[in-house]
Structures are given as structure tokens and as C-alpha cells.
Amino acid sequence: MRVLLKGILQRDLTLAFRQKSELMQPLMFLLVVVTLFPLGIGPGPDTLQRIGPGVIWVAAILSSLLGMERLFRDDFADGSLEQMQLSGIPLYQIALCKIITHWFVSFMPLLMLSPLLALFLNLTLPMYTALLLTLLLGTPVISLIGAIAVGLTTGLQRGSLLLALLLIPIFIPLLIFATSAVESAAMQLPYGPQIAIIAAIMLLALALSPFAVSYALKVSQN
């Protein structure tokens, strides 16, 4: 445990904070994309409220794809991943550590930015609460499943577009349940079931993804 904390978590966090600009770019992209919608569709408060949750989620998925490659790209390219694999730590634990760091550095800022987005798109407080819950439970799924695809494509030179092609269809259920939870909240209906389903998807991904990632990385190293 100490090994993982010091050798992987601390290292990755240090690295993340040395590349702040790379962390900020997806976030700025998110903000710009969300700004486009009122301009494209019209600033009617009702319209914005209707499309708001969907827009935020779509923008979150797209912006997360931009920075996704960072998960393993540098470590694969410079050989650090090789050295980690030869350290005797099971690869799935390394993968899980990296996924956790990735979630922390790329989605925590997004969660902090979300009140601003909610204001932009005229979401009510109950809607925002639901949105925050879905983001809190749903974004780890993006990191977990994204890591599998990144692990598979990391050896390829130009993998980023491919990554989007592979991942977007997989994230559709997430989008559906998340936006419907927020819609239910808007109509003051209970949205527990949707949240529960998202949580279930998250747990499923959490259970399976580290092993899939470790296999994927082994394939890439071959």
C-alpha cells in the first residue's frame, strides 16, 4: 500500500501539477462548448433549462476525451510503464492507482466548475443537486472505462480520434440515466433509481476495469 501511495500516486500527482496547462485545457474547452449552446439555440431560460443537463454531460464526456490519453501516454512513451511493470506490483493495482489519480485531477476541477455551468444553463437548485450526484457517480465510469481504451491505443501514434470512436458509444447509457435523473429532479419526481443504476454501472466498472486495463497494457507492451 505504501509502495503504491508513494511510487505511483504521489508521482502522478506531482507530474499532474507540473503540467497544469494540460490539465486546464479540457476544462476551458468544456466552458467554451457550454457557451456555444445558448448562442446556437437561443437564450430562452426554459429552453436552456430543458437542454442544460444533456449539454453539460455531453460537454463533460467530450472534454474528458481530450485529456484521456494522458493516462498512460507519457509513461508508455518514456518507458516508465515498463519499469512499473517490472517492479513486482500487480499491474491491476498500478492501473487502479492511475485511474484514481486521473479522476482526481481531471474531474474534481470539473465538479468545482459545475455550479458555474448550472448558472449558465439556468438549472434550478434541485436540478443542480441531481446533476452533481450524477457527475460524482458517473465520471469515475468515464475514467475507468476510458482507461481500458487508452491502454489499448497507447502504443499507437495517433490514437485520440480512435479513442473517441471507441468510447462514445459505451458512454451512452451513462448519458441517458444522468440526464433523466436531472429531468426527474426538474419535475420534482424521485430520481433515486437513476442514481442507483449509475452507481451500479460504476461499481461494475470498478470491479472489472483494472483487470481489463492490465491486460490491455500487456497487449500494448507486446
Binding site: 481500458i148 458509444p169 459505451i170 451512452i172 447509457p173 461494475l204 481489463a212 500494448s220
Partner: peptide
């Protein structure tokens, strides 16, 4: 192997996608 992993990830998702849609 890579495409195989993706097919497996997809097949876990097919029922979820189906029912969610």
C-alpha cells in the same frame, strides 16, 4: 487482442445500452 478486449467491453455494454435506450 486489442479488438477482442473492445468486443468484450462492448458485449457487457450491449444489454445496458439496449435497456437504457
Amino acid at each position: 487482442k486489442a479488438a477482442g478486449v473492445m468486443a468484450l467491453v462492448g458485449v457487457v455494454n450491449v444489454p445496458i445500452i439496449h435497456y437504457s435506450v
